[in-house]
C-alpha cells in the first residue's frame, strides 16, 4: 500500500472514516478458534456480551456465527458459555480441515 505524502494527509491528526479498523485482520493472531455448536446454542448472548473484539455475529437477536476475520481466539466465549456449546479447536487443524 502506498502511504500518503504529507501534502495528501488531512490537516491535524484526524481520521475521517469511523471504525475503519475493521480493515485490520486481527484474526491472524489466533492459535485456537471458537466453534459454536449451533444446534445447541440458546442465543443467550453472553458470548456476544463478553467478546472483547465484537466478533460474535448476530442477526435478529440470534447468534449466527463468528467473525474469524477479527476473532483473536481468546476463548472467553467458550469459558463463559453457560451451555458449554462453544469449543476451542486448534487453528491449524481447523484450517487444514477447511482446505480439504
Amino acid at each position: 500500500m502506498r502511504l500518503k505524502s504529507w501534502k495528501e494527509l488531512e490537516t491535524g491528526v484526524v481520521i475521517l472514516e469511523p471504525g475503519n479498523s475493521v480493515l485490520y485482520r486481527t484474526g491472524t493472531w489466533r492459535t485456537f478458534r471458537p466453534v459454536i455448536d449451533m444446534e445447541k446454542c440458546t442465543h443467550c448472548m453472553f458470548c456476544w456480551l463478553y467478546c472483547p473484539d465484537g466478533s460474535i455475529l448476530v442477526k435478529d437477536s440470534k447468534v449466527i456465527g463468528i467473525d474469524y476475520e477479527h476473532c483473536k481466539g481468546c476463548g472467553i466465549c467458550a469459558y463463559e458459555c453457560p451451555k458449554k456449546v462453544i469449543t476451542m479447536i486448534e487453528e491449524v487443524k481447523a484450517r487444514t480441515e477447511e482446505a480439504k
Binding site: 469511523p18 471504525g19 475503519n20 479498523s21 475493521v22 480493515l23 485490520y24 485482520r25 486481527t26 493472531w29 456480551l49 463478553y50 467478546c51 472483547p52 473484539d53 465484537g54 466478533s55 467473525d67 476475520e69 477479527h70 483473536k72 481466539g73 481468546c74 476463548g75 472467553i76
Partner: peptide, 17 residues
Amino acid sequence: ASGHRACHGCPETIIVR
C-alpha cells in the same frame, strides 16, 4: 469496531462495548 489491537482477552474493550 473490531480490528482494534487490544490483547487477547482484554477486559477494556468488553467494558467499553
